[in-house]
Design a protein around this nucleic acid. Structure first.
Lengths: 248, 248
DNA sequence: GTTTCGTCTTGATCTGTGTCAATTTCTCAC
DNA sequence: GTGAGAAATTGACACAGATCAAGACGAAAC
């Protein structure tokens, strides 16, 4: 099972050393034998849709590797991303059968799925699971609300800077922990996906990235690889107070 | 205790006839005697701040009467509302000590508070509570994400129409249930608060309301009282598909 | 190597919403 | 009733970001 360095704690085994937001594959196998028959793996290729909004979704899942997005759309095609699923993130809603959003793989992705009915039954029997899910959901709610501030009140430049600092934090936690002021990472999203996340057009995204590059806030190698010489400067551009919170 | 017609089901007594999202005052007294000593009431006047973002918040609470808002701000004063608390709504976060947002009373308000520590202990002992809180939090997350679509992609006119149809739904459920196509309600918010909710300026809010009035979508009596002659028309203006979801 | 196709950048122009400012309308105290 | 302050409306103008359009770049196929 693909499960290299990352070892996120499972919902179902709360005393793993590393705390993370996930239902974890390996962990479950070790600890909860009954999960064996309600769990299965599915992989999707970049660009594939995992579920459409409104479709029946009879599982919950956690991302093992790759990246997926949650999006909502209006009839005329305007789309807004409302969530970004990175490895170890959880998706699905116990207690509701229909999916509320489109879930799309932006890279090749492997998901660890749990059939919903048995998962819910397990939740009934194991209070710890509901409590853990509650914590995770509250975290996501905070992230969503932080995102509302971004969508409603930030300028295009601030939006881009915010997104970059969030990706920097999630994508390069090692750099960050080491207090290196130079941080480096790959953008996991196309310009269009960034635009959908930020409530902008892809042209504006491109222009603002160019502007940040011109002003020395970031350094680009190719289109996707980003270096941030001074993380504090980027955070300042993002307009957040102090440590910028806990987005995504 | 002020608890007139509304009788929302409590987190702590799950088999009340009417299902609603709340920790309910009367209900608790009837059913859970041990709650008596962890529960107390607080009232605030219109305009008063209940808690500031970052302050210690040693209670969770439910709104008994009145309206409060959750807001976030940037250093330079730009503010974005991220939640609207109507009677029976729950506020506070088990498992975290600091408040994440400013909570402000927009009308006189009465809140039923529970000291956090004992509430959390009760959650430990009573699995049902965590499950109920999880449902509520998932609902709020859905609402927040619907709101992200509004903030990121809707026009000013669509934003106003969306807000009006949401208030109509929550404020005049009787009208709506009766299938009367004419719906009537009072706006519980100032133009400025509406602007903060919608990511607009108060001038734009005012202009768009005037435009909707001019176009016959709504009828105003005074500044706050709204009649909607044709609810379907309003929903169309809001740009939502079919039934518009489950905002706020 | 060349071609092709998707992604990205950049330019020119347009427009929706913000900004600034002047009135008007409400509400409530007196 | 009158006056004062808050809330809301309306107008004129500016500008950030959208739209439309043309190219540049990069990766994969041949």
């Amino acid at each position: 099972m693909p499960h290299d360095d990352v070892h996120p704690v499972s919902l179902t085994c709360g005393d793993c050393p590393i705390r993370h937001r996930a239902v974890c594959a390996r962990c479950d196998v070790d600890e909860i034998e009954e999960l064996e028959d309600i769990k299965y793996y599915r992989s999707f290729e970049a660009g594939q849709t995992v579920v459409w909004a409104g479709d029946k979704m009879d599982f919950v899942a956690s991302v093992v590797s790759g990246i997926a997005t949650l999006t909502q759309t209006l009839e005329d095609g305007r789309t807004q991303m409302v969530g970004l699923l990175l490895p170890s993130d959880f998706v699905g809603r116990p207690g509701r059968s229909g999916a509320a959003y489109n879930v799309t793989a932006t890279t090749n992705i492997l998901m660890c799925c749990f059939r919903k009915k048995p998962f819910e039954e397990m939740m009934e029997r194991t209070p710890h699971i509901a409590q853990r899910l509650l914590q995770m959901t509250l975290d996501e709610l905070d992230a969503a609300r932080e995102w509302m501030l971004l969508l409603g009140r930030k300028t295009a430049r601030e939006k881009i800077a915010s997104l970059l600092s969030i990706v920097a934090r999630r994508d390069a936690p090692i750099n960050h922990a080491a207090q290196t002021s130079e941080v480096t990472f790959d953008l996991p999203l196309t310009r269009e996906a960034m635009a959908d996340y930020l409530g902008l057009t892809l042209e504006t995204v491109s222009r603002q990235i160019s502007a940040l590059k011109r002003d020395g806030v970031i350094v680009l190698e190719g289109k996707r690889h980003v270096s941030v010489p001074d993380m504090d400067r980027l955070l300042m551009e993002a307009g957040d107070d102090s440590d910028g919170g806990f987005l995504i």
